Simulated assay, not measured.
Amino acid sequence: MSKRIVIGISGASGIIYGIRLLEVLKETDYETHLVVSNSAKLTLAHETPLRFEDLTSLASKAYSIDEVGAKIASGSFKTIGMVIAPCSVNTMSEIASCITSNLLSRAADVAIKEKRRLVLMIRESPLHLGHLRNMVSLVEMGAVIAPPVPAFYTLPKSIDDIVNHSVGKILDLFDIKHSLSNEWQGL
């Protein structure tokens, strides 16, 4: 299996999760293929001082959301899977409904149909029954729902500690080595 991973960033609050994921993966031998929604570009401007070019420079390759013919839209392009960090309820709902109107939802659909790992860092609260039903549908299709929930047993001292722990859990799902968080040693 190739050491390629697709990273999607949608417009939910918490774009730091996608940024940190890309920062960590840039220091590995994984090739990252990034697709960013139009709403995520707005979130980037609102939540960070980064320019869009700063974000895309963290990836091995970045694609336009409208580039539906990109290689990540094909099952023949081998990857270990895809993470959408953060994942908006809108994007999650498109994927659950098998709507592939842009490259982000198409790449996620490819991950599911090819039986590759798809991890969605859902960023929404509270959730209504429709959201929860879509999550159940996605899990039944093979996706992993992994909201960035803070872990306080780690005694975080900063927001970075909280972000790093959540991103570390995502990397663990792909067996990617990292130093963001430590394995629980028990009491």
Rank of each mutant, 00 (worst) to 15 (best):
L22V: 04
C98N: 12
P86N: 08
S37I: 00
T28Q: 03
R106Q: 13
L58N: 07
I122D: 04
T154A: 11
G81A: 01
I19D: 09
S101D: 14
D109G: 14
D160E: 14
T154D: 12
T28C: 07
I95W: 01
R20D: 02
I16H: 10
L180A: 09
L173Y: 08
I176R: 10
S166A: 14
N90H: 13
S10Y: 10
K61R: 15
L138S: 03
Q185A: 15
N38M: 07
P126N: 06
R116V: 00
E27Q: 15
F174K: 10
R106M: 14
K113P: 04
H46C: 11
K26I: 05
D109F: 14
Y153I: 01
R133P: 00
L132Q: 09
I176N: 10
H128I: 01
G81K: 01
L138R: 09
S181L: 04
E140S: 11
K157V: 04
M121T: 02
P147T: 12
S39M: 11
L129N: 12
M82F: 00
I145K: 11
A45C: 08
L138W: 07
A146H: 13
G81F: 06
I19H: 15
Y153Q: 06
I16A: 11
I65M: 03
D160Q: 12
D66R: 12
K157P: 00
V35G: 04
V139L: 02
S76P: 06
L187H: 13
I122K: 04
A40P: 09
K157T: 11
